[in-house]
Computed example of a mutant assay.
Amino acid sequence: MTDPRARGNDLTAKARIRNAALDLYAEYGEDRVSMRTVADEAGVTVGLVQHHFKTKDGLRAAVEQLVVDYFLLAIETASPTGTPAQIAANRDEAVRDMLETHPAVVNYIRRTVLDPQSQGRLLERLVDLTRTEISKLRNNRIASTRRPESTQVIGLLVRQLGQLFLQPMIDEMWDYLAAGDTLHSDKPVLSVTVT
C-alpha cells in the first residue's frame, strides 16, 4: 500500500507540516500541541504553517483528511474479487493491516473520536467515506440492498474500529487477570465480529 504521507525528502512543506501535526496530535492530543511545536517538528516557521493552513482548525482538517486517505488507500488495495463476503473480508483485512502498520493513525483516531471535547469532524468524515463505499458496493450488487444503508455503514465501522477502541481496555483486563494467573502469560487479541 502506498503511504498517503509520501516518503523521502521530496515532501512539500505543507505535507511535512501536516505529517508532523498527525504525529504530535496522536502522541499528545491536539489541545496540548501548539502551532509553534508543529512548525518546529516540521522544520518550518509558524508563519508558513499559518500560510498553508490559516488556523489550527485548518490544520486539524488536513490531518483528518490524511487519516481518511489512509482508510481509502487501504480499501483501494483490497482485492475486489470473490463473493460479497470475501470482498468485505478483503477490505476489513486491508484496513486492519493499515492500522497495524500506522500506529499514529490509531492513536489519533482514539484521541479524537473518544474525546467528547474534540472539535474535529473525523468520525463524520469516516462515516461519509464508509457511506460512499457501501453505496458503490450496493450499486455494483456486491452489498445487500435488503438492509438499510445506515445499518451497513454502522456495522462496517464497528467491525473495522471496534478492536481499535476496545483493545486497550481488553489489555488492561488481561493484565489484571494475569497478575494472579501465571498460566496465561500471552494476551490474546480481541476479535470483534458484527453481522
Rank of each mutant, 00 (worst) to 15 (best):
residue 131 R to V: 13
residue 132 T to L: 03
residue 132 T to K: 01
residue 132 T to Q: 06
residue 132 T to A: 06
residue 133 E to Y: 00
residue 133 E to N: 04
residue 133 E to F: 03
residue 134 I to V: 14
residue 134 I to G: 03
residue 134 I to S: 03
residue 134 I to A: 05
residue 135 S to H: 02
residue 135 S to Y: 00
residue 135 S to I: 01
residue 136 K to F: 09
residue 136 K to T: 08
residue 137 L to F: 10
residue 137 L to T: 10
residue 137 L to R: 06
residue 138 R to A: 09
residue 138 R to F: 03
residue 139 N to H: 11
residue 139 N to L: 11
residue 139 N to P: 10
residue 139 N to G: 12
residue 139 N to E: 15
residue 140 N to H: 07
residue 140 N to T: 11
residue 140 N to E: 14
residue 141 R to T: 11
residue 141 R to Q: 10
residue 142 I to N: 09
residue 143 A to L: 08
residue 144 S to I: 12
residue 144 S to D: 15
residue 145 T to N: 05
residue 146 R to L: 14
residue 146 R to F: 12
residue 147 R to T: 15
residue 148 P to T: 14
residue 148 P to C: 13
residue 148 P to Q: 07
residue 149 E to W: 01
residue 149 E to I: 10
residue 149 E to A: 14
residue 149 E to C: 11
residue 150 S to R: 06
residue 150 S to Y: 01
residue 151 T to I: 15
residue 151 T to F: 09
residue 151 T to S: 15
residue 152 Q to P: 12
residue 153 V to M: 02
residue 153 V to I: 10
residue 154 I to S: 07
residue 155 G to K: 01
residue 155 G to P: 12
residue 155 G to M: 09
residue 156 L to F: 13
residue 156 L to T: 15
residue 156 L to S: 13
residue 157 L to Y: 02
residue 157 L to V: 12
residue 157 L to W: 04
residue 158 V to W: 02
residue 158 V to T: 12
residue 159 R to A: 14
residue 159 R to F: 07
residue 160 Q to V: 15
residue 161 L to D: 06
residue 161 L to P: 07
residue 162 G to Q: 04
residue 163 Q to W: 02
residue 164 L to N: 06
residue 164 L to S: 09
residue 165 F to G: 10
residue 166 L to Y: 00
residue 166 L to E: 02
residue 166 L to H: 01
residue 167 Q to K: 02
residue 167 Q to S: 08
residue 172 E to G: 13
residue 172 E to T: 09
residue 173 M to W: 01
residue 173 M to K: 04
residue 174 W to F: 12
residue 174 W to R: 01
residue 175 D to I: 09
residue 175 D to Q: 06
residue 175 D to M: 09
residue 176 Y to W: 07
residue 176 Y to N: 04
residue 176 Y to Q: 04
residue 176 Y to I: 04
residue 176 Y to V: 08
residue 176 Y to L: 08
residue 178 A to I: 04
residue 178 A to W: 00
residue 178 A to M: 04
residue 178 A to G: 09
residue 179 A to S: 10
residue 179 A to P: 00
residue 179 A to G: 06
residue 180 G to A: 12
residue 181 D to W: 01
residue 181 D to P: 01
residue 181 D to G: 04
residue 181 D to A: 08
residue 181 D to N: 10
residue 182 T to D: 02
residue 182 T to H: 01
residue 182 T to E: 02
residue 182 T to G: 05
residue 182 T to S: 07
